[in-house]
Design a protein around this nucleic acid. Structure first.
Lengths: 370, 370
DNA sequence: GTGAAAGCGCTAACAC
DNA sequence: GTGTTAGCGCTTTCAC
């Protein structure tokens, strides 16, 4: 039945609203017979507490927004899944409101400046376009934690993996496999995202640490973050005569596109060209060959982000805390290895998601600090 | 600034709350100077209307829940994207609350019986386990529209594509390609979902309509809806000596797994084995070879579902309406074709998403009614 | 055209 | 232990 109010239950049971409220909230100070009587009234009337009324009174909605570019990107859909589970497991039992920014600055602005306040208790945002300054200015007093390696003002909390370190480790792994012409694939053509920028920096560091030359020709940009774009770009590079024996990909979408371009040209993976992707999305295990990938610990990322957000919601008002979570290389057929590298920052790498297909688990540990 | 209330603005501007409210809502009956004066107060104080207060008063939250098994399944993440865009484009400008049922009956029950009422104005639910009866009983008075071919009580609205027809068309297409041993891949091992059941019925109808025998050996179940499971199952079937020259897959995940199993064994696609998937997810265009797939018109699905939901929210209380939306075969390398089949129910197949790689667009139209 | 006041459904002091 | 009451921030008749 709709429209049954606390009041109605109270009248039906012949008690006050407060008593009904106590029963609903399982308060200790209610006698057993009273509790039973009220419960019967609740059941008879089919009463459900009205969330909005409660929330007006408490000032909390129990909702948090999760905002990122596009749920269709596997990394984000997997993140949404992890975050929504972790949020539900929270003490407050948060539910997740999905917000897509489309990766545009207008979208990010819209999400931050939602004209209505109070709908959500806080926000997890993965920005990619807005400047730190704009983020700091716009978010107002909405409790917020930033996700990922994008811009982040010092005043706001943020969780990420060390992209430079991860790209370095992955590139070094390719070098250690004996590859000498390692290309980077998948960064934006025109204005590069923060993400691409950092991964390229790490790629370069990896090359340098192994004494390999950095060649501009070996940077293969794509029009957009999409596998078909990457397939086209890699195909064109090959056809243009660019030669490489390994591909460090900005993300798994780029890697999957690269796989296709290589297949089409009869290039063998990993014999002729080894490939490493990024994000360790579920598909990586079933591509042919299966795809090695940088595997961020998203469970830990979600956990830490929600913990900080909860503190902000509770009223913590200190300076922005920047946290790193760990990553590892999930090694599969496209770039097998005898060594499993991992970078750890915040302790346990509990997530056993990353199927490491080959090699002894010689764990190469990076000590990173925020 | 937080905590600026309508009241504060009213005092600051020296007017009543009603006038401020009128300005906020752009009501016509406000004199220009008055409007300007109030607007200045709003700007000076940095006032944002509080969503919860408003919603308590209006009884609407502007939120709808979208509930399905798991966002990580590409079909669902693509659906979430489409629905959230379509919802925002709605007159009411709905936002989407994500709910995952994990495909379990407990999850579906939890989503339907959320102990709090009033948080969302309505719900879009894709059930897979619950019986029609239970859905009818549990949803109470929450405006709801069911998505997909799962159970649906007559009392509740529902939108789907005709799965039997689509599976028939796809199977016939494989037969028309000259295949005679067409296997079905990807249904659950034990208790079959409604989805699998209907697709298998259509598969059988397709075989029969082309005079092909139905062999029980050619049903290849998998443990779960996941590509690695499908790769394993198809691999085992081949290794067990099952021979086929085409695969009709329950979904694209199964198809992608099948692709891998075939590759591993050096079986050529589509020459030795043609493959058709289902859902037309983004990856289909970049697998190698690219994947033909049954392509439901999800834009139309979302549009129709939201339209019906809006009507329910407005108070419409008639019997459940069951609507079909159209689908087409997106033909790519894994099962090319000279003929593009499509089933149409509700008019325009506006979505040009489906890249049909080959053949003259001889549109084979199915007339289907609810 | 503008203002006053009564809720919307619930919570939480505070009194009994 | 249980009841009373005053809000939470907004909308919305209904007067003026």
């Amino acid at each position: 039945m709709a429209g049954v109010r606390l009041q109605d239950v109270a009248e039906h049971a012949g008690v006050s609203m407060k008593t009904v409220s106590n029963v609903v909230h399982a308060h200790p100070n209610v006698s057993a017979p009273m509790r039973e009587r009220v419960q019967r009234a609740i059941d008879e009337l089919g009463y459900r507490p009205n969330a909005i009324g409660r929330r007006l009174a408490t000032g909390r909605t129990g909702l948090i927004a999760l905002a990122f570019a596009d749920v269709r990107l596997p990394y984000f859909s997997e993140l949404a899944n992890v975050v929504s589970k972790a949020a539900a497991a929270t003490g407050a039992g948060y539910r997740v409101l999905l917000e897509e920014t489309e990766g545009t600055i207008e979208g990010e602005r819209a999400v931050l400046s939602a004209s209505e306040a109070g709908l959500v208790d806080g926000m997890l945002l993965q920005p990619s376009q807005m400047s730190s300054r704009e983020i700091a200015e716009r978010h107002g007093d909405l409790p917020m934690v930033l996700l990922g390696e994008g811009p982040a003002p010092l005043s706001v909390d943020r969780v990420m993996i060390d992209n430079v370190a991860a790209a370095t480790v992955a590139t070094e792994h390719l070098a250690d496999l004996g590859r000498t012409r390692i290309a980077f694939v998948g960064h934006e053509d025109a204005s590069m995202s923060w993400t691409s920028r950092q991964r390229i920096v790490g790629y370069q560091q990896g090359l340098e640490s192994r004494g390999l030359p950095v060649e501009h020709d070996l940077l293969i940009p794509t029009g957009a973050i999409a596998s078909d774009e990457a397939a086209r770009a890699v195909g064109e590079a090959i056809d243009r005569g660019i030669r490489f024996d390994a591909l460090m990909c900005r993300d798994d979408l780029a890697a999957i596109g690269a796989l296709r371009a290589l297949h089409e040209r009869g290039i063998s993976i990993p014999d002729d060209v080894a490939v490493i992707g990024w994000d360790n999305i579920a598909f990586d295990a079933t591509t042919f060959p299966s795809l090695s990938s940088v595997s961020p610990n998203t469970h830990e990322l979600a956990r830490v982000a929600l913990e900080m957000l909860a503190e902000r919601i509770e009223g913590y008002d200190g300076i922005g805390r920047h946290r790193l979570v760990d990553f590892e290389l999930a090694l599969r057929e496209s770039a097998p290895g005898s060594l499993q590298a991992s970078g750890a920052a915040s302790g346990d790498a509990s997530d056993a998601d990353a199927a490491v297909d080959a090699g002894a688990p010689g764990s190469l540990s990076h000590s990173l600090s925020a």
